[in-house]
């Protein structure tokens, strides 16, 4: 039960951390690194409010041990902005009011980021399939889908507004 030393990339920056075996990523981010953008909803991997991207794959941070980060790269909602410029997904969420209480929003945005990185020109069904990973109890999903579709249409015309990592 000796803390493990881990090296990983946190929102683009190399980090070394000491973590105990029973520390889940959700608590590591929120309590140790003060990155509270990942929210704890169901603590069971069902709601996806704590979704972050590890090596560009969406994972529920309540279902992932901190030590598993060793050698990997994690992106949280706090890492999505570039020099105070919002990611186009964040901008689209604002324009379409694609959130209400906001508790699922970090996770939803990151799921959609992963989707766009894996499938640059997804259909509406693909959007629905990806966001069905997470639960939004407020919006009925329509405005989230609208935000995603707006970005897909915009990128089809102009390409992404920033390099996707």
């Amino acid at each position: 039960m000796i803390p493990m030393e881990i090296d990983f990339i946190l929102n683009g920056r190399a980090v070394t951390g000491k973590v105990s075996g029973n520390l889940l990523l959700a608590d590591y981010l929120r309590e140790h690194l003060d990155l509270k953008g990942a929210k704890i909803g169901c603590s069971r991997g069902a709601c996806g409010s704590c979704t972050v991207l590890v090596n560009n794959i969406p994972i529920a941070a309540c279902s992932y041990f901190a030590f598993q980060l060793d050698g990997k790269s994690v992106l949280t909602i706090e890492g999505l902005e570039r020099d105070t410029t919002l990611h186009d997904l964040q901008q689209a969420f604002i324009e379409h009011a694609a959130f209400q209480c906001g508790y699922c929003t970090s996770g939803m945005i990151l799921v959609l980021k992963a989707m766009l990185d894996h499938e640059p020109n997804p259909s509406r069904d693909t959007v629905v399939e990806w966001i069905s990973s997470n639960i939004c109890r407020c919006t009925g999903y329509a405005q989230i889908i609208a935000a995603a579709e707006a970005i897909i249409a915009m990128r089809a015309n102009t390409g992404p507004t920033e390099a996707v990592s």
Binding site: S20, G21, D27, S43, C62
Partner: peptide, 11 residues
């Protein structure tokens, strides 16, 4: 219980 009540463990 939840992941926040997980006792120490080895890895």
């Amino acid at each position: 219980t939840s992941f926040r009540t997980l006792p120490p463990l080895d890895v």
